[in-house]
Amino acid sequence: MSDHLLLGKFDLYWANFVGLIVLTAIEVAAVGLDLSESMTLFILVGIAIPKFIMIAAIFMHLWGDKDSKILTLTALFPAFFIVIMILFIGLTHPEASIGLPDWCRPGYYKL
C-alpha cells in the first residue's frame, strides 16, 4: 500500500467510504421511485460501475500501489473472457434457455 493513502491530510479511505455509502443510498432510493425499467437499469449500472472502481482502486490499492500497473493488468485479464462471455452469450442456441435437450435438463441423471 502506498503511504500517501494512509498519511495524507486528505483521508482517502474515509472519502471513499462515504462516497460508497452515498452511492448505495441513491441506488436503493432509485428503486423506490417509480421509474421505468430501462431508467432503473441505467441508474443501477451507472452507480455500480463507479462503486466497483472505487473499491478496486482505493480499498484494493490498485491506484497508488508501487505494483499497480501489473496488478491492474492482472485484474483486467479476465475482462477478455468476460467480454467474450457477455458478447456471445446471445449467440447461443435461440432456445438454449427453454429448449434444452433432456440430457442437460435438471433431474435427468437421477444421481
Binding site: M1, A48, A56, F59, H61
Partner: peptide, 25 residues
C-alpha cells in the same frame, strides 16, 4: 491483513454487482 483485505474487498466488489442486479432490478 492486506492480503486478506484483498479477498474481503473482492467479496464486497462482487456484492456491488450482485445487489443491484439480483435484488433491485
Amino acid at each position: 491483513i492486506e492480503y486478506f483485505g484483498l479477498y474481503w474487498h473482492f467479496v464486497d466488489l462482487i456484492w456491488v454487482i450482485v445487489f443491484p442486479f439480483f435484488y433491485l432490478y
